[in-house]
């Protein structure tokens, strides 16, 4: 499969760097989770990196996004600080949420990342509120809701698409259809195979894209952003993709999926696709790739070192921030 785009080579290499950052960050998070340095639950985005990066590359710094329980990729693509992310996973004071949130609840409102969320479909209405805020601010901002195929069956998806369409909110609803909700195949719970088809019921565009093709995602998102900024209202973009790892990193967590299906999707690795494309264009060679990889790894090592050197919260800080001052 050949990818096509009119993005500059620098921008394309930057997309590769971000996608690699997400992957290496999660490989490390998974290993550290199994080593007992990260607690609770970790959901990996590996295999779906092109969605977050393709969409966020189409956004500006003042645009806002919301994430899901599978949130690391969205954070990184929106420009979150790896140090504070890793420190949060490590449960340290210096983490984004001062150790109160962990993997499922990283947020950075300063960069327009309104939070990962542990409740399926819980973010869709909140970020629609960010869309309403953008409309009322009148500065051309847009808001993006990332959510899964599973979430697309929940009430807030339908309720918000209708409101956003009726109010012409500057919204982009990005369904990451990885074909499963925890252990249940989407085919068992969806009446129609394409979530995007539901857009018709709300009178808005519904677009299906190859979620492993970062340029296709970017192009669809750019179109939706233009439409939203110019007052045209919301767009639903469905990105067909796949998660490589089990639903969570928990030990002994079953993965009922067909191994052949997993392997087939791994052959459609979004990162390998982008890398090959850059090489074919003559925009990437071995030293170039090594430089990108090296940069990613040193940033990651620095983040781990930062997390490890950071103190745990003090027990008495458990009662901080229950109420705002």
């Amino acid at each position: 499969m050949a990818l096509s785009t009119n993005l500059s080579p620098d921008k394309q290499r930057e997309m590769l760097r971000q996608m690699l950052t997400i992957r290496r960050f999660e490989e490390r998070a998974s290993a550290d989770y199994l080593a007992g340095k990260i607690y609770g639950v970790v959901h990996c985005y590996i295999g779906e990196e092109a969605v977050a990066v393709g969409v966020c590359t189409a956004l500006g710094g003042n645009d806002r996004i919301i994430s899901t329980h599978r949130g690391h990729g969205h954070c990184i693509a929106k420009g979150a600080d790896l140090n504070r992310m890793m420190a949060e996973l490590y449960g340290r004071q210096t983490g984004y949420c001062k150790g109160k949130g962990g993997s499922m609840h990283i947020a950075d409102f300063g960069i327009g990342m309104l939070g990962a969320n542990g409740i399926v479909a819980g973010g869709i209405s909140i970020v629609t509120g960010a869309g309403l805020a953008a409309q009322m601010e009148g500065k051309g901002g847009v808001a993006v809701s990332f959510f899964g195929d599973g979430a697309s069956n929940a009430g807030p998806f339908h309720e918000c698409l209708n409101i956003a369409a009726a109010w012409k909110l500057p919204m982009i609803y990005v369904c990451e259809n990885n074909m499963y909700a925890a252990q249940t195949a989407a085919a068992q719970t969806h009446a129609l195979p394409d979530v995007a088809a539901r857009a018709a019921g709300y009178g808005i565009p519904g677009i299906v894209v190859d979620g492993n093709d970062v340029f296709a995602v970017h192009q669809a998102a750019s179109g939706a952003v233009d439409r939203a900024r110019s007052g045209g209202g919301p767009t639903l973009i469905e990105c067909k993709t796949y998660r490589w790892r089990a639903h969570t990193e928990r030990k002994g967590q079953p993965d009922p999926r067909d191994q052949a299906e997993v392997e087939a999707w791994k052959r459609k690795d979004p990162i390998a696709l982008l890398e090959r494309q850059l090489r074919d264009q003559g925009e990437l060679d071995d030293p170039g790739l090594r430089a990108i990889e090296g940069g990613v790894m040193s940033a990651l090592e620095a983040a781990v070192a930062f997390a490890e050197a950071s103190p745990f919260p003090l027990p008495e800080q458990a009662t901080d921030d229950v109420f705002a001052a």
Partner: peptide, 11 residues
């Protein structure tokens, strides 16, 4: 304690 439950083990 009457707080939302925090993540970090110390907390």
């Amino acid at each position: 304690l009457q707080v939302p439950i925090p993540y970090s083990p110390v907390l």
